[in-house]
């Protein structure tokens, strides 16, 4: 065998050994839980589970806000999430203590918020699911100023609360929440 052939065998051997070492190193660097359930790091599931919860439930909010609870739970808006209008639980409470103040919508902000769901102009809303109104026709038909905001007649947490109360007082009809 020629000198060159021997040298090439040495080179090839070095390459094979280096590749082998590479694979050994590779095996060491694969994360521990990789492959437990499939071709992925099983611990990533746990890490996802540990992600902090930011939205609570209405029960979480109403536990402290008992005054609002009494109204909200009885009204037609009882399916609306507190946090949609006010912000997330996590921005308000941490470790069981109040940690921040959440905004309360005011005036025209409220009307904008109401019309997000109740605007008749958006035809894609099923009347079986939601009662919609046209603005400003609704204000005109109710004979109130066009500058009125929704919450001047409708309690935001129980929209028919005042209406029904008024009807009861005037004897127009029986109460409906």
């Amino acid at each position: 065998m020629s000198n060159y052939a021997l040298r090439l065998i040495a080179v090839a051997t070095t390459l094979v050994v280096a590749t082998g070492i590479g694979f050994v190193v590779k095996a060491q660097l694969i994360p521990d839980s990789f492959g437990k359930y499939g071709h992925y790091r099983a611990n990533a599931i746990d890490e996802e589970v540990q992600r902090p919860i930011r939205h609570g439930t209405n029960t979480s909010c109403l536990k402290c806000h008992t005054y609002e609870a009494a109204i909200h739970l009885k009204g037609r808006h009882n399916t609306i999430s507190c946090e949609f209008c006010h912000g997330t639980y996590a921005d308000h409470v941490s470790n069981g203590k109040k940690s921040g103040t959440l905004p309360v919508k005011k005036n025209t902000e409220i009307s904008t918020l109401c019309l997000r769901c109740h605007n008749t102009e958006i035809k894609a809303r099923s009347q079986a699911v939601i009662k919609t109104v046209a603005m400003p026709q609704h204000l005109e038909s109710q004979e109130v100023k066009l500058t009125h905001t929704c919450n001047q007649c409708h309690h935001v947490h129980a929209p028919l609360k005042y209406i029904n109360r008024a009807k009861q007082i005037t004897g127009l009809t029986e109460a409906e929440s």
Binding site: E48, V49, P52, I53, H55, S81, I130
Partner: peptide
């Protein structure tokens, strides 16, 4: 997933009013 594993509904389901 982090909510479901703690017995809570997904945030979007939780807030859906309808």
């Amino acid at each position: 997933y982090h909510r479901v594993r703690k017995g809570l509904l997904p945030a979007c389901v939780e807030v859906c009013p309808t």
